[in-house]
């Protein structure tokens, strides 16, 4: 049975790969609920003390608060920019279109480390560095590219005749965009927002360079982390992971059925 040997090997590998991928998450969740001061064995019993300490201390929760202001705002602005541009790129041809598309993907390829140094220099000149506004401004440009990619994917599935029919029936261009294109693109818009939000939520290095005392969550976690091992980090990690899972489920339910559907005839 040679056939089963290969398939068995593949499944064995897959099991090992999943174990590797999930090991940190399991450790994070397990030791957020264990009394051990330093994560390790033997386990010392279940407790919620790290969660209590996390909320008592408040630093990381405050940072989570900052992130929950910056990331939704940045994701919303990025998604609006991406929808407008995605519509225009889908419908119009113009000189320099390829160049523009290339330019838009550059923020993905240029490492955030380099952008962080650049942003810092420019923002310091206009006295904006060290604020949450600075983080917001820089995150928008970073997350517009992935948002645009998803919205373009969705809009490319829209039959051209749909909009033309709206015009023929007397809709103005604006009405067609609002009543026909926007509803069609909605799943793409939601998916783009969620992806943009996730990227902004997790972004570290740019926020490290441009944020001051109002740290975002990854920066605050890093500050705690370089100082000492603190099991409260397990607690905040578990909370953040639970939030991400909610986003992931939302993404799966709302988005993927639309995006992998064949183009409407």
């Amino acid at each position: 049975m040679k056939r089963n040997a290969w398939i068995g090997l593949g499944r064995l590998w897959l099991g090992l790969a999943y174990a590797f991928m999930f090991l940190p998450l399991v450790v994070l969740i397990l030791f957020s609920l264990q009394a051990n001061r330093f994560p390790g064995f033997p386990l010392q019993g279940w407790t919620l003390q790290w969660y209590a300490r996390l909320f008592d201390d408040g630093t990381l929760i405050a940072a989570l608060g900052h992130t929950m202001i910056v990331s939704p705002a940045a994701a919303s602005v990025a998604t609006i920019i991406a929808f407008l541009a995605g519509y225009a790129l889908n419908r119009f041809t113009f000189p320099g279109k390829t160049a523009l598309l290339g330019l838009v993907t550059l923020p993905i390829i240029i490492p955030p480390l380099i952008l962080g140094v650049g942003f810092l220099g420019l923002l310091a000149r206009i006295h904006l560095s060290g604020t949450l506004l600075a983080v917001f401004l820089t995150h928008v440009v970073l997350i517009t590219a992935p948002a645009l990619a998803i919205i373009q994917l969705r809009l490319s599935q829209m039959p051209k005749a749909l909009e033309e029919a709206a015009w023929d029936l007397g809709a103005s261009e604006w009405q067609a965009v609002r009543r026909v294109v926007l509803p069609f693109a909605l799943p793409g818009i939601l998916g783009a927002w969620l992806l943009a939000f996730t990227f902004s939520f997790d972004e570290f290095i740019i926020a490290w360079f441009v944020s001051g005392f109002d740290q975002t969550l990854p920066v605050a976690i890093y500050s705690v982390l370089v100082a000492a091992i603190d099991p409260s980090l397990n607690a905040i990690g578990t909370i953040v992971f639970a939030m991400s899972c909610a986003v992931l489920i939302a993404l799966e339910v709302l988005l993927i059925p639309y995006l992998i559907r064949k183009p409407d005839a």
Partner: peptide
């Protein structure tokens, strides 16, 4: 979908 900094902390 989980935070990169936190994954590094877990590692």
């Amino acid at each position: 979908w989980s935070s990169y900094v936190l994954r590094l902390y877990a590692w």
